Simulated scan of single mutants.
Amino acid sequence: MRIIEAKDYKELSKQAANIIAAQIVMKPDCVLGLATGSSPIGTYDQLVEKYENGDLDFSKVSSVNLDEYRGLDHENDQSYYYFMHEHLFDRVNIDAENTNVPDGTNPDAEAECKRYEELIRSYGGVDLQLLGLGHNGHIGFNEPAPIFEKETHCVDLTESTIEANKRFFASADDVPKQAYTMGIGTIMRAKKILVVVSGADKADIVAKAFFGDVTPEVPASILQMHPDVTIVGDAEALAKIPR
């Protein structure tokens, strides 16, 4: 596990974008696993800047997103499909046909999860998976649980996740209660994993997830077992890790 400490969110975003950009340069037709939420927005902005400067070409890149709320359509501005188009896809020259987000409108959870898992396998897996880190240790929408879920599945969101996400909605009642998400096994099959984390409010979970016991009660702790993980965090988020 490699840990890169950035002085602030802007530097963190630059460092993370540099790692993703290097992946694209090394393998122009790479498969990127992408994440949503507030943490990667700066990273996407930096990638867009590199593209606009002529330093990055997304034309052969394919992408698979970690997750999507169940029940939200593409036009809903809180859907992750909408988020990805707003922050990255519509701002670079990636082929829309090669971008993939779980279909939150599919009412058949079993069929959608199977379809998405097969889609990821059809690409030959993910070359680099970008992750954020939830306050309770969730990655994607893999919540604390008795076991590590292996493949893409439909999950009931915990109250803490709903509470954390309600700032994006009119009220907590409007936050979807379920989501489709890659499983822990799906994530762990990525060749490389990049975690971005910022803020003092993440310091406790960073220390617990990456320096504590490996347990499904802290889903991100499984990343300790992956052979190629890079964590890019600002000083506040990394304040409680062992030195």
Rank of each mutant, 00 (worst) to 15 (best):
M1F: 11
I4D: 11
I4V: 15
E5W: 14
E5T: 15
E11S: 10
L12P: 08
K14T: 10
Q15I: 15
A16G: 14
A16Y: 12
A17R: 08
N18F: 09
A21N: 12
A21D: 08
I24A: 04
P28L: 09
C30I: 06
C30Y: 03
L32R: 07
T36G: 07
T36D: 04
S38T: 12
S39N: 00
P40E: 08
Q46K: 06
N53E: 12
G54P: 07
D55E: 03
D57R: 00
V61R: 06
V64K: 00
V64L: 06
V64D: 07
G71V: 11
G71S: 11
L72T: 06
D73S: 03
D73L: 07
H74D: 12
H74M: 12
D77A: 09
Q78D: 00
Y80N: 14
Y80K: 10
Y82C: 10
Y82I: 04
F83T: 13
M84E: 02
M84W: 07
L88Q: 06
L88T: 03
F89L: 02
F89V: 02
D90C: 01
R91W: 00
N93Q: 02
I94K: 09
E97N: 13
N100V: 10
P102L: 08
G104W: 05
P107M: 05
D108A: 11
D108E: 11
A109K: 06
E110D: 13
A111V: 15
A111L: 15
E112Y: 00
K114H: 14
K114P: 10
R115E: 14
L119N: 13
I120S: 01
R121Q: 10
R121K: 08
Y123H: 08
Y123I: 13
G124K: 09
Q129K: 14
Q129S: 11
Q129P: 14
G132C: 02
G132T: 02
L133H: 05
H135C: 01
I139C: 04
N142M: 03
E143A: 00
P144I: 07
E149V: 15
E149G: 15
E151D: 12
T152W: 03
S160Q: 08
N165D: 06
A172P: 02
A172I: 13
A172Q: 06
A172F: 06
A172Y: 08
D174F: 02
D174C: 05
V175M: 09
P176F: 02
P176C: 07
K177S: 13
Q178N: 03
Q178F: 01
Q178A: 06
M182E: 13
I187S: 03
R189K: 10
R189Q: 01
A190W: 04
K191E: 15
L194D: 09
V195G: 06
V197Y: 10
D201V: 01
K202L: 14
K202G: 14
A207V: 13
K208Q: 02
K208G: 00
F210V: 04
G212C: 04
V214A: 03
T215N: 14
E217C: 10
E217W: 07
E217G: 14
Q224M: 08
M225T: 15
H226R: 05
P227G: 00
V229N: 01
V232L: 08
D234M: 07
D234G: 02
L238C: 02
P242F: 00
